[in-house]
Amino acid sequence: MLVPVTFEGAEMMLPEGANLAAALLAAGVGAFRTTPVSGAARGPYCMMGACFECLIEISGATRQACMMQVQAGLVIAKPKGRANGAG
């Protein structure tokens, strides 16, 4: 079932329960964040929770998108400032 989430303010419909990073990639999101050092765009690299390139912000907490599943109503933002990956 497709459920609504927002990414950087834009609403999109993603399959419920799917891997969040995979679902965002499939929806055409390439850059998940920008780096705190140079501001370069980054997206998922390992898909197994090891590289921390897929960091996103959900309700103020930084999470690894590749280790999460899609749920209705997720409000996702690109992390700002130093990446910390708390999750």
Partner: peptide, 21 residues
């Protein structure tokens, strides 16, 4: 190798196995 769209082969396989993508 840090550009979005560059991933490990393992990541490509994980997309296939877990998400059928």
């Amino acid at each position: 190798w840090t550009l979005p769209g560059v991933m490990t082969a393992g990541a490509g396989q994980i997309l296939l196995k877990a998400s059928g993508m």
